[in-house]
């Protein structure tokens, strides 16, 4: 198997503050990576660097054989292959559910409208929202909005999906429905996924690799069950203790 994403000695600074230090990470096609770590440890920054919402300050990023910073002009191509799901859903408020999902294929993939709409209907059906296609985001619950957002990210047919705490803004009773959709994507489509989450159950069940970040460093990584059972560092022990008690 070849790696679809590679970070080589990547650093990221905001002004004078370096928030990612010398990150080396290689992600194989079809791999599901779960990223955990305390607040401010750089989890969001790391995955935002992967689809170039943040530009890396030094080092090299290779996504689907496109090299950053060398091929900066091809960032849009990277984004076509790397979708993202946000904590705050970020659905377009002036479009219905089906319009939200069809927007990507019709504008980014230049598909004709009826074909894009067909794809959108299909995906909404897959995430269990067929009967909500004509609702606006404001008329949907948080869990429903996040499922539309996942369908929207899938609609451009990316090779990789990034999730930034996709269930953190949801009421507890809605977390399950979103995690179920994510699990089925991981299992059925063999999608490469990088998921920032504190849902340890999800990590154990579908994660191929768990990465623990602290203070801008990757501190530990390995099989989720092993890392969780036998954390090597004090910081991870500490962190897991906190997560379990919540």
């Amino acid at each position: 198997m070849s790696s679809i994403i590679e970070l080589k000695n990547v650093c990221k600074s905001f002004g004078d503050t370096e928030v990612l230090h010398n990150i080396d990470l290689s992600i194989q096609e079809g791999e599901v990576i779960v990223v955990i770590g305390p607040s401010g440890s750089g989890k969001s920054t790391l995955i935002r660097c992967i689809n170039c919402l943040e530009l890396i300050s030094s080092g090299e990023l290779i996504v689907d054989s496109i090299k950053i910073p060398d091929e900066r002009g091809r960032i849009r191509q990277i984004r076509l292959e790397v979708g993202m799901v946000f904590q705050q859903f970020n659905l377009f408020p002036h479009m219905t559910a089906v319009e939200n999902v069809a927007f990507g294929p019709s504008k980014a993939r230049k598909m004709n409208k009826s074909k894009a709409t067909d794809i959108a209907r299909d995906l909404l059906d897959k995430v269990g929202l067929a009967e909500f296609e004509n609702k606006f985001p404001g008329q949907l619950s948080g869990g429903q909005q996040q499922r539309v957002a996942i369908a929207r990210a899938l609609a451009v047919n990316p090779k990789v999906l990034l999730f930034d705490e996709p269930t953190s803004a949801l009421d507890p009773e809605m977390i399950g429905e979103v995690l179920d959709v994510m699990k089925s994507i991981a299992k059925d489509s063999g999608m490469t996924m990088v998921v920032v989450t504190h849902e340890m159950g999800f990590a154990a069940q579908v994660g191929d690799r768990l990465i623990f970040m602290d203070d801008g460093w990757i501190v530990e990584e390995g099989k989720p069950a092993e890392v969780m059972k036998k954390p090597k560092s004090e910081r991870l022990k500490d962190f897991l203790g906190h997560v379990k008690h919540h």
């Binding site: 984004r79 946000f86 970020n90 377009f92 927007f103 990507g104 980014a108 451009v156």
Partner: peptide
């Protein structure tokens, strides 16, 4: 919203 749109490659 812009980030969501950019992430779609738009």
């Amino acid at each position: 919203l812009l980030e969501a749109g950019m992430s779609l490659g738009i």
